[in-house]
Amino acid sequence: MSRSENYFLPDFSHIYLESAAKEYEFTNLCLDRFSNSKVVEIPDYKSVFNRPGQDFQTQKRSMKLILAVKKPPFIYKGSNMLQDGGFRNFYYNTPILNCLYNCDYCFLQGMYPSANIVVFVNQDDMEKAVESEIKIRPYLDEPLMLSISYNTDLLAFENILPMTRLWIEYSKTQPDLNLEIRSKSTMFDSISDIESTDQVLLAWTLSPEKVVNKNELDTPPLIKRLKAVQKAIKKGWRVRLCFDPILLYSDWEKDYLDLLNQIKSEISFNEIFDITVGVFRMGQDYFNRIRKTKPESKLYYQKYINDAGVITVSQSDREAVEVFVRENLSGFIPEDRIHFWD
């Protein structure tokens, strides 16, 4: 049964509005955008988002919007699950919790008890926290790299709230700030009028069409993501390509080779800033939490190793992926611009 079938209410049929979030600009924008939604006022966003007894995958069929005011911390140091791409002052923040997409391998379904989307409307507080952190970053001769799309796909949300636009514009006022905006969306058009800046790295996750169809529910097809990449490059943006995760199944090499060949034929690797590569990995707590819900995806029933609390594929499989990527990108992009998760 597809999510859009008539049985379920449309996404954002309900907006849960934290009392403290009233009167913020983002709140008004959302309420205007979804003027037919039922608005339910709540004392605290956690009274909806953190309720016990929620079913993440069933909620995905009718996601609700929660508007809330974020309390500190507003910025976090990057975890070992994230790829820093060579940036030593690597941080992330969470303007939005959860994602419009529903990828099988996504850690969010284990991280959060709810599939509902939380938008934190107090952008100013997040910006101030970034400014404070810039001043005390460990490597003062390097910029602070902030991933703003870590617990969501921020660009996919752009036609609902222009948050990506605001962050990009904000970065231009902070010379020591770089942004990584990772996405699978094709919403580049909604920010294409902004003058490009080297402070912002637009990163697209690319997967073979078979993986997109099977494991990346509700995401745009590969061909449309490639078009968005092409447009971004043409407009002068720094673009990162992410093959992360590369999923291992029988004949994965063939599908990923086809993917790389398709990219080679449509995009000049000289114009790519860098590439990040990773395999399926997830903190064991998240993995076990997802596994308990008996998910449909076969990903959660395969053999993995537990590497210091991280559920992932074997070392030999990781090496096979690295060899595969290096061999097939050799001559197209310098090796030091390919970053592997390990």
Partner: peptide, 19 residues
């Protein structure tokens, strides 16, 4: 769509997913 408990001031929210 939301239940407030007057006594303990707690709030309970059922998920309304279906039309």
């Amino acid at each position: 769509n939301v239940i407030f408990d007057e006594e303990n001031k707690q709030c309970f929210i059922p998920d309304i997913l279906c039309r």
